[in-house]
Design a protein around this nucleic acid. Structure first.
Lengths: 126, 126
DNA sequence: GTCCGACTTGAACTACGCTTCAAGTCAAGG
DNA sequence: CCTTGACTTGAAGCGTAGTTCAAGTCGGAC
């Protein structure tokens, strides 16, 4: 059988079994079957979990990801949400980029308190 | 008196008064005094709150910000934390940038399910 | 002098994403 | 057959970042 035990999936995906059960409850994944009480998974679950991890890292909530995963390409609302998320990411990236510059400066500047450093302020403002 | 009432500060900073009390509990701000029970703040609290908002947006926790705010320029540990945070941001920015590209593509591509789209996968993969 | 309304407090509640717990079940090994 | 140990369940707990609530207290206007 090519099915994977929950423990195997957890290990390969770098997640706790409890997280897999949690994801299941939220509709992100489904076990392929059971061995006794034990969940068994199709190997396809692994790339799906990669996708989930990636989306989580990009700031999507579990609920959002669940919606994305069931969507078809004809789902216009989904496309819209994705485009909107991309725009949000754009803003976030800009903000983080500014923050990174501020931090780099702050790590080197000598103003006390930091809030008084004009360069720091400049990097943060707006 | 140049002191600001908590309501004024809340409004100018775009925060709820409850958030100000919460920040106080966590050591981010201090009222200058009281008018009866009412907190009054020095105007300096406003730029500080801007800083807090900015740092929050960059992914710092309240506890981290509290540590930053009490630090002096001679605090080597602080510098280190800042540099480390900058590096973390670097990674986050890269991740978000990839995710943005994936999303832009996903919003346009026609694979169902999305997970099967090779471009999407490529954009997501490490 | 009294009332109003905006503040005060601590405690409880929310949402998110899990983890941990207690109690139970089951497959496999001896 | 019996033990072992990793799983099962639902419920409760945790950390973060606040908000909301009940009950109480004041400053200031009338």
């Amino acid at each position: 059988m090519t099915l994977l035990d929950i423990a195997e999936v957890a290990e390969k995906a770098g997640l706790a079994p409890s997280a897999l059960r949690f994801y299941e409850k939220r509709g992100l994944i489904e076990p392929a079957g059971r061995n006794g009480l034990r969940r068994t998974y199709h190997p396809d679950v692994l790339p799906r979990l990669d996708l989930v991890a990636c989306a989580r890292g990009a700031g999507f909530t579990i609920a959002e990801i669940a919606r994305f995963l069931v969507a078809t390409p004809s789902d216009a609302a989904l496309r819209e949400r994705m485009a909107q998320k991309a725009a949000e990411l754009e803003e976030t990236i800009a903000r983080l980029t500014r923050m990174r510059a501020s931090l780099r400066h702050a790590a080197a500047c000598t103003h006390a308190p930091l809030v008084e450093c004009p360069d720091f302020k400049a990097a943060i403002d707006r």
